[in-house]
Structure formats: C-alpha cells, structure tokens
Nucleic acid binder design. Structure first.
Lengths: 174, 174, 174, 174
DNA sequence: CATGAATGAGCGTTCATTCAT
DNA sequence: CATGAATGAACGCTCATTCAT
C-alpha cells in the first residue's frame, strides 16, 4: 500500500466519522489528504469503494477485540470482558473507527451484516451456563446497555461513562 | 397554517425520516407534496428552517407522551409507564417523528438539547423513592435499555421487541 | 417555450451538427447560449434529453419536405421530386438539422427508426408503376445515390453537386 | 514492431471501429490489450498518434485492394472489379479497418485527403473509354452507389446487399 | 399565497497525459 | 521496453436558493 493510498484512507475515516459519509465530498478528502482527487478513484473506483476499504480495515481491528472474548470458556469472564469492552476498545486510535461504525448503522443504504451477533451468542451461552432463567433476553438487554454506553462514550467522552463499569461489574459479577 | 404548508411539512417529515435530511432534496419534497419548490422557501426560508419546523412540531407530539409520566407521583407507576413508552409511542402515526428524532442524533450539526433529560430525572426520583442504592445509575441504565429497544423497533419493527416489555416489567415491577 | 429554452435548442443543434454529440459539452452549450448550465437539465433532464428534443423538432421540419412526395400520385413526378429533394431541403435554415441527422447515423447508440423508409416505399411503387423490371432495387440504388449527394452537399456545399440534378433528371425522367 | 505495440494497435482498431474514437479511453485500450496505459504514450505519444498509426496501417491494407484496379487496362474489367470491390474487401479480417474509415469521415477534425480519388479517376477513364457521354458524372454516381452499399454492408451485414452485385454488373457490364 | 424559470457552486467521476522507477 | 502511481482539467449532473410574475 503506497503512502498516498494510506493517507486517503486515514483522512477519509476521520472525516466520515465526524461529518458522515454523505456530507464529506471526495474533493475535501483529497484536499485534506494532500492528494489529487483523481487518485481516490484510481485506488478505490468509487466513493463507496473507499468506504468499503475503510470498513474492511476497521473490521480487522475491531475483530482483534472480539476474538479473546469469543474464545473465553469461563462464563463469568465472558461477561466481565464484555462489560469492559467499550471502555477498552474506544480509545484514541480506534475512536474514529467506532464512531463511523455507529454512524453507518443509521445509513439505511449501507447494510452490512450484524457485527455483534457472535458476541451476543457468546453472551447468551454465558448466561445460560450461569443458570439465568432467560439467558437470551438477559444477553440482549446487556448488549443494549453496552451499546448505549458506547454511544455515550463516542458522543460525550469516556469520563462520564466510567462509573458504569464498576456498577455493571458489581451487578453481574458480584 | 395553509393546506400546502402542512403538506410540505408532512411530506418532508416522512422523507427525512426514511432517507435522511441530506439525502432528500427540496425539489423532491416539492414534487412529492405537489407544490412548487419556491413555496418551501417562502414558508421556511431554508431547508434547515423546514427541518426546524418539523422538529418543533414533533416535540409537541412527543411531549404529549411524556407529560403524564412527568406528572405521575407513584414511583412504580413511573417506571412501568416508562417501560411501556417505546411500545406505545412508536406506532404508525408517530413512527416517522421518532425515526427522524433518532436519525438526527447522529447528525453532528443538529445538536438540540437532550429531549429525554426530564424523563431521566423523574426516573431517578422514582428509583430513589423505591430505595435503590444507586438511583441515578439505575435510571441511566434503564434509559439506555429503552433507547436500545426504541432503536430496534424503528429498525426491525415492533414484534421482535415485544418480549422485552414483559421481561422488564417483571424485573422492575415484580 | 421560453426564450432561453429555445436558445439552448438552437445552440445545441448547431454545435452537435458541427462537432458531434459527444464532443460538445453541456457547459459549452450553456456558455454559447448565454445560459446557466443547470438550466439545460431543468428543461431537458439529460444531455440525451436535449438531443431528443432537437431530433423531435427536426423530424417535424423534415417531415414537411417528405409529405408532398408521399401524397403525389404521378410516378414520374414522385421520382422527379425525390431527385430534387436534397437540393431543395438542405438550405441554410435546415442545414444543421440534416448534418446532425447524418452524423447520428454513425452514432451506434442512437438508433432511431429509419426515417427514409416511407420515401423508399413510395419510390419503389413509382418504379413499379413505370414498368421497371426490378423496381425495389432501382429504388434502393437511386436512394443510395441521393444519400451520397446529400452527404456531399453537407460536406462540400451545394455547388459541386448541382450538376447531378440535371444529370439524374435527364436519366430518370427523360 | 514489438508484440505489445502490435497488440495495442489491433485492440485500438477494433475498439475505435466499434465504439468510435472519442468513446474509447486509453485506459480501456490498455486493459483490453493487456498492457500498461503508459506504454501507449511511450509508443505513440498521443491518443491521436495511436489513431494515426492505425490509419496509416489501414491505408496499406486497403491499398492492396486498390492496386490491381488501378493497373487494369481493360475498361469493362475496371468497372466490374470496382463493383465487386465492396463485396470482396469488407470481410472479417478487414471489417474493422473499413468501419473505422467510414466512421472517421464524420469526425470533422480528422480530415484526411480523399482516399478514393485515384479510383474515381480510373473509373472516369473507363467510362470515357467506353464512350459514355458524361464519364465523370457516371463515375461519381457509381461511386456514390458503391459507397452506399459499403455503408449498408458495414451496418447491416453483407447478405442484404449481395443482390446489388448481380444487378449492377448486369446494368454496367451487360 | 403561489409559481416556475433561472442560477452558481459543488458533486462524483472520467480522462489523456506525465514521470519516477 | 515497460509499469503504474499520480495529476488536473473537464465532464454530466444535482442542489439549495432567488426572483419576477
């Protein structure tokens, strides 16, 4: 991957995450990245192709966070690691990746397969192992909470949400 | 309010909710509403002004749903009514209002003050009345769950989420 | 039809006829016509739509030349009028219309139905009435000659071809 | 001539003939020919230079068809061979050469000297030898017919035009 | 109140061409 | 000889907005 191609991806990621895919023009990306506009299309064919390349790259990075949880065989540890996931994963480096991810959810036309399904299944398994009466529903509820926390972190920063880490760990892990 | 002005608002609401504010052109709104494009600007001066008018109208309607909860003085009843709120509020008539509301949350440029703050405060009060140890945090958590449910209803329909109503009522009301 | 709309059509006709449809940009048409580029698309939706409007207009004008021939019931008169047709029809006013017509023939993608078929049929009828052995072939041959003359007129002017009028009339009408 | 250079010429010829010079991009030629786009400019400096190379090559090939006619000293044989020329020359191998040739006639900017002038002169000579009253005009008329036949062959295939071969031979050779 | 002709800036994209390797 | 990254100008087209009527 050439330097300029990488600069396009990085610039576009940040701009897309901040302003939304539609609101960012390819000319702005090019200008910001210090590249000619045509180069974007040489490398990615489309504006959409550029987005795809970004998302694919992001999936690799987020996958790294998911893998250890999916492999964990201790139910309580699964729940614990899932609770602390949003607090660990959304740091400076990957902030834009996550923000883009959540923004795209509201972009009807960009219907990528649900990224979080494997985590939900694992969580259901954990609740089941622990003898919860309604493991599937417990899992979905906790996921909604963590989703909400992630959204708040992305919008208002980490600090305001940190209190929930201890609270949820206490509630679910005791 | 003239007939045509109202038609513009109603048409734009539906289009904005479905396709997003940026993706809908004023020309499409005019065509769909059966009015001239110029009329939109006579009435609302801006495309943004049209959005503001819609949001203001929406706030009135959603406020009607919030009022009885805010006036309720029985803590358990507050929680109960809040839990069933997303299942009651998001029906055909107001579906577009809510969808637009949630979509706008992700448009950075449209940063209206948090609509749900009064509800959150009331919920905190209720949990406090009921002797919960961390009423503020309990309230925020429940709000995040309900937020997540509302989002799912808007994206996938009511049916898949109905199960959570009973589950949450059982959990919080016993 | 507004003044500007008409100016767009007239300007585009001349440019298309001279330089070819693909070689003329909408921005050039707008500039030459003294109009904003956007207006072209307001009136004709497409660049292609503009071409269609021109061709439709041209068909009316060329139809006026064809009608009297198609109604003529005297075989010799049919042939005579057809021979003099290219010399009469391609004058200053309609020069661009014909040039465009012939140019579009080589534009594979623009496959309009054969305009000259009715004339060919009438000519075949005339040759048949006059007792020619192979009226269909005689008609096609004469049409090819007249086609060739029209092409030469469009490319090199009327003068060089005028001699053929007398020659052909002598040959076919005696 | 290197293999790749030849591949560029052959590919471009076919593409130009089918889609027209302007409609074919250098990138498409490169892709289709399996070479890098830069190589086209190394060899021909311009897109126009590539076209020139093709046309020059084509002139050699078409010249091979003209030579025997120009050398023929029997008037009737000249006419006969000229009549059958379009039916002989436009076969699979050289189809694209002729199609391109005729297409370029309508590109104003590509005004190459009339290729067919020597043939016309020879034909005039032949008609003169045979005692025709207006040999020059007879020659031009027959050339226009053959031109029209060539065009029809290129656009609709050989079959529909074959009938004219016998008809014209009968008419001119008896 | 309402229309619709008209605009100008910007969009995503294509293209012929250059140049370092 | 050959590549392919890179460019800049132009393209067809969309858009929010203005204004005379």
């Amino acid at each position: 991957m050439t330097d300029k191609k990488e600069r396009i991806i990085n610039t576009a990621l940040i701009l897309f995450a901040n302003d939304g895919y539609n609101a960012v023009s390819t000319s702005k990306i090019a200008k910001e990245a210090g590249v000619s506009e045509g180069l974007i299309f040489k490398h990615f064919s489309n504006k959409k192709g550029l987005l795809d390349a970004i998302v694919k790259g992001a999936e690799c990075r987020t996958g790294e966070f998911f893998a250890p949880i999916l492999e964990e065989m201790e139910p309580l540890e699964v729940i614990k690691q899932l609770i602390i996931l949003p607090f660990m994963a959304i740091h400076e480096d990957s902030y834009s990746y996550w923000k883009l991810q959540f923004k795209l959810k509201w972009q009807e036309e960009y219907n990528k397969p649900n990224n979080f399904k494997p985590l939900l299944d694992k969580l259901t398994w954990a609740f089941n192992e622990l003898g919860y009466k309604e493991p599937a529903m417990e899992a979905e509820i906790l996921m909604k909470v963590l989703d909400g926390i992630a959204i708040s972190i992305l919008r208002e920063g980490l600090e305001g949400q940190l209190k929930f880490k201890a609270f949820l760990l206490e509630k679910y892990i005791k």
